[in-house]
Amino acid sequence: MIHYILKDKPAKLFLGITAFFCCNALIAESIGTKIFSLEKLFGFHPVNFSLFGQSGLSFNLTCGVLLWPLEFVITDIVNEYYGPKAVRRISFTAIILISYAFLMYFIAIGVPPADFWIGSGTSNGISNMQTSFNAIFGQGMRIIIGSLVAFLVSQLVDVYIFHRIKRITGDRKIWLRATGSTLVSQLIDSYIVLFIAFSGVFTWQMILAIGIMNYIYKAIMALILTPVIVFVEKKIADYVGHDIAHKMKKAAMGEEDDGFLNIPTAG
């Protein structure tokens, strides 16, 4: 059985995409504890916005947003060639693996540290390695839950909007359905995680203001990455063959089963 899968280009492509999708999502969640200044990254002074009565707002973002835009690019590509069921499958797979990873993080935090290891980072300015380890891997439970719920809901919304637009445009204008679905789903993603993680901690005005700042960045990234989607689409067609690529798109649009597995192999 594995011999046939490894000879089937659409199947091999799906396995590769799934692996990258899950790995990218896990890395994004893991590095999300660091907050960086987008303005300083490009050599500018932090901006000072005022929204909903909140002043001093700037683009202070979690490092996870450096990778999350790629998740929506991959979602749109999978949606285009494999259909909604495939998107749901890789999304649930990613959530299960991320949940498993955080469970292992919390177990690792609870394991008693070796005495020599606690002070082993002194030469690097780290007085207590266990405290630093806890700070890096011990994200708050509400933040974890908020992030996972936001990820799942935004993925499902992205799938729905993508296919609604595709029914109108057909195989044309992948940039329109990809960018349009991402712009809507990213807005939902921004606010779900904030409301779950910080409701009762921040005022609703602060949540709305922070959400807008985050969404501005995500919307800009969605527009910047639009040419990447068009480029990847062409590369996939070259890899599997244009006839098979066309059949994959038709199968993805016409049914939600794994239609790509029934497409004749290209070698």
Score class of each variant (00 low, 15 high):
39 E>D: 13
194 L>S: 07
135 A>M: 09
96 I>A: 15
2 I>E: 12
200 G>P: 10
75 T>M: 13
257 D>E: 08
151 F>H: 07
153 V>M: 09
239 Y>R: 05
212 I>R: 02
188 I>T: 07
101 A>C: 10
171 D>C: 01
221 M>D: 01
167 R>L: 09
94 A>C: 07
251 A>P: 00
40 K>R: 13
133 F>A: 08
73 V>A: 13
107 I>L: 14
182 T>F: 02
97 L>G: 13
226 T>L: 06
99 S>C: 12
177 R>I: 02
81 Y>M: 10
229 I>Y: 00
243 D>G: 06
112 P>Q: 07
51 L>T: 02
175 W>Y: 11
173 K>L: 13
55 S>E: 15
33 T>D: 06
124 N>P: 00
240 V>W: 03
244 I>F: 00
176 L>Q: 05
134 N>A: 14
166 K>Y: 00
199 S>I: 04
236 I>L: 07
17 I>F: 15
152 L>Q: 08
84 P>N: 09
16 G>W: 06
151 F>W: 06
147 S>C: 05
249 K>A: 13
228 V>W: 03
171 D>Q: 10
198 F>K: 04
190 S>I: 01
249 K>I: 09
237 A>T: 01
93 T>Q: 11
74 I>M: 15
16 G>R: 07
212 I>H: 04
61 L>P: 09
42 F>T: 13
262 N>F: 10
12 K>C: 14
38 L>Q: 08
196 I>F: 05
184 V>A: 14
4 Y>A: 12
141 M>N: 02
21 F>K: 06
172 R>P: 00
64 G>A: 13
188 I>G: 05
116 F>Y: 13
230 V>Y: 14
226 T>M: 15
234 K>D: 13
89 R>K: 13
202 F>Y: 15
241 G>M: 09
12 K>R: 15
240 V>Q: 05
195 F>W: 11
254 G>L: 09
132 S>T: 12
62 T>H: 14
223 L>A: 14
66 L>F: 14
38 L>T: 03
107 I>N: 04
59 F>D: 09
232 V>I: 15
50 S>K: 12
243 D>N: 12
159 V>D: 10
161 I>H: 07
76 D>K: 05
29 E>H: 11
94 A>G: 09
18 T>H: 02
90 I>C: 08
203 T>V: 00
256 E>K: 01
253 M>C: 01
188 I>E: 07
197 A>K: 01
29 E>V: 12
76 D>I: 01
178 A>H: 04
170 G>Q: 07
109 I>Y: 01
239 Y>M: 11
267 G>H: 06
8 D>C: 04
9 K>W: 04
193 V>L: 12
245 A>F: 05
160 Y>D: 07
267 G>R: 12
94 A>E: 07
224 I>M: 08
15 L>E: 02
131 T>D: 14
29 E>M: 12
226 T>I: 02
123 S>M: 10
2 I>H: 04
32 G>R: 03
154 S>E: 04
248 M>G: 07
247 K>L: 13
105 Y>A: 13
156 L>P: 04
157 V>Y: 03
150 A>E: 05
245 A>Q: 05
236 I>F: 04
2 I>K: 08
235 K>Q: 14
257 D>I: 08
199 S>W: 12
51 L>G: 08
131 T>G: 11
